[in-house]
Write a protein that binds this DNA or RNA. Structure first.
Lengths: 334, 334
DNA sequence: TTGAAAGCGTTACCAT
DNA sequence: ATGGTAACGCTTTCAA
């Protein structure tokens, strides 16, 4: 049986109210009493019951992070940033994975109506074309910050990388490297992040490559299916000579396809991926990447969320914070 | 204001007790009443308050995962396994990062005395040479399962890979590839996982390589310091011709050092790493790896923990579950 | 089959 | 400066 405030009160023959206030370092309590209480608490190994406190206060000092997946350098680093901020403010972090399923995402968010968490950090799934479950929480006045994979139409704070711009720059770079047929492979067109990158790609092509080749590929969650999609793409005479991958995991797939089909990177196909992956420089050939500021995005999103939580009035303001990506040029596009 | 059991009771003019039991699908309640309650609950958007429930029941349906870091393919995959099991049993997952600091780990575990979580999954930090903070929780009868980086002396369940054996096999393999001077680089000798791998390495050397070169290197959390350690190691005439890396992150460091010092892998140095890293095959040269069953370890650890939670009596049994690793031979050791 | 009421541990209001 | 007590929302025992 663990120590309660009441036990401390009994031991010191004072009231629970006094103990509670003393532990909260209230100015109403005398120095002496505080000392007494603190000593007794330490001696008795007192640890406050967070659930009693949460129930009473209506706040849990807990936030939720909802992600499509975790085995991805971007999300792993983002969590790092989130955890750092949360810890520093005394918040606890619940983690949920949607596994790219809208259904799961809906079920996860539904639970948050319970008050389990004070706020939510969300990066939506590939399938998320309907955002009613997110709006519902916003209407419930639960602070929510979207990051990386956001829904711009929602009336809340978003933290993203400069996807349009970096995609534009990346595409232009491939054009400058004499690519005539540049393809773009993303995950879901539901995702605004993917749309932004696609638009950056299209925009760069239209402004700098009047030739007109344009090819937007939707990859699959399933690696083997994506393999087939790429294999089909690269078969035939009019295949692309450059490709931009919007998803980290596709790097392995395209390298494999090229190895199997004896397609030389970069001579026959230049490859560029949006990823943070720290081994990119040691791949064969070393991979040109658009590095997103993952840690920074996590930190910024968490900071924005905790800032919202610090206000008593839940202001639903729409705001988008854009952080710069960095392109690192390597051999896969040389 | 969110819906409570009392509101449902008022709406239906029945008691809160009845509503509570109906929602719990108790056999005490009639079919009709249950239906009435369920409908009202759905209509009113009722979501149970988990903190009220946790306080009353003394259980939170929440577990904690405490990790040294997250930007590591092993831990990311392990979380995946953990989350899958937790979700299927209706548990929530709190995540904490020790960042390889014993102090942080202690602070994190200390909080768990509060009853915030029903059980704990822990992979200890590099610095963890004192396990009093873990014993304290075990004595508090809080179920805890250690995984990957475990402390065998503790009286609890451990889930690990076959580190001794795979290290032994890896070392023997390098010997068979004519390596005469094989070094081993690990993180902390505090970690039993590292000790097991070191012992597998030593054992293989002693049985198969009477020559007697043996070199155990302790790397640093700081990448730049590890770089220096490796650079120093590889300078000079009697440098190793093979190296086993016990830490994923060291792969990038050794590749960098070799690139900078013009050391050819595998001809001048054969490299083999304990990692799950799915791009290993595309590195230049492709990297020979000991793949740990990360997802499986996470799943197994979570399953063991939830099994413990399902018992009313907390039995403190010591048990170690060992899962097999797989060595994948590639060009870095050819 | 239903309901009244106690209580989980904490906080906060109102007295003293 | 301290204390009594109600309340947070739920579960569970006991009584009807």
């Amino acid at each position: 049986m663990s120590t309660t405030i009441r036990m401390i009160a009994n031991r010191l023959s004072i009231s629970v109210a006094t103990v509670s206030k003393a532990l909260a370092d209230s100015h109403e309590i005398s120095k002496e009493t505080k000392l007494l209480v603190l000593n007794a608490a330490k001696e008795m190994g007192y640890v406050p019951n967070p659930y009693a406190s949460s129930l009473r206060k209506g706040r849990s000092k807990t936030i939720a992070v909802v992600l499509p997946e975790i085995a991805d350098s971007f999300f792993a680093e983002a969590i790092n940033g989130i955890e750092e901020v949360a810890l520093s403010k005394g918040y606890h972090v619940l983690i949920y994975l949607s596994h790219e399923s809208l259904l799961r995402e809906q079920a996860i968010l539904q639970d948050f109506k319970s008050g389990r968490v004070d706020g939510i950090l969300l990066s939506v799934s590939e399938e998320t074309n309907d955002t009613a479950h997110i709006s519902a929480l916003i209407e419930n006045r639960i602070p929510i910050v979207l990051f990386d994979r956001v829904c711009e139409e929602l009336n809340t704070t978003c933290v993203v990388a400069d996807d349009f711009e970096s995609s534009y720059t990346a595409t232009k770079y491939l054009i400058s490297k004499s690519c005539k047929r540049i393809a773009f492979a993303g995950n879901s067109i539901n995702l605004s992040i993917n749309r932004n990158r696609v638009n950056g790609y299209i925009s760069a092509l239209e402004k700098n490559n009047p030739g007109g080749y344009q090819n937007i590929i939707i990859s699959d969650k399933d690696k083997d299916i994506s393999y087939q999609i790429f294999a089909d793409l690269l078969r035939g005479p009019n295949r692309p000579d450059g490709i931009i991958l919007s998803v980290e995991k596709l790097s392995a797939v395209i390298y494999k396809v090229c190895a199997d089909m004896m397609i030389d990177i970069p001579n026959q196909l230049k490859v560029l991926t949006f990823t943070n992956f720290n081994m990119a420089q040691f791949l064969s050939p070393s991979l040109t990447t658009v590095n997103q500021p993952a840690f920074q995005i996590g930190k910024t999103a968490a900071t924005a969320l905790l800032r919202k939580l610090s206000f008593t009035t839940t202001l639903t303001e729409s705001e988008t914070i854009v952080l710069p990506s960095q392109i690192i040029y390597r051999d896969s596009t040389s």
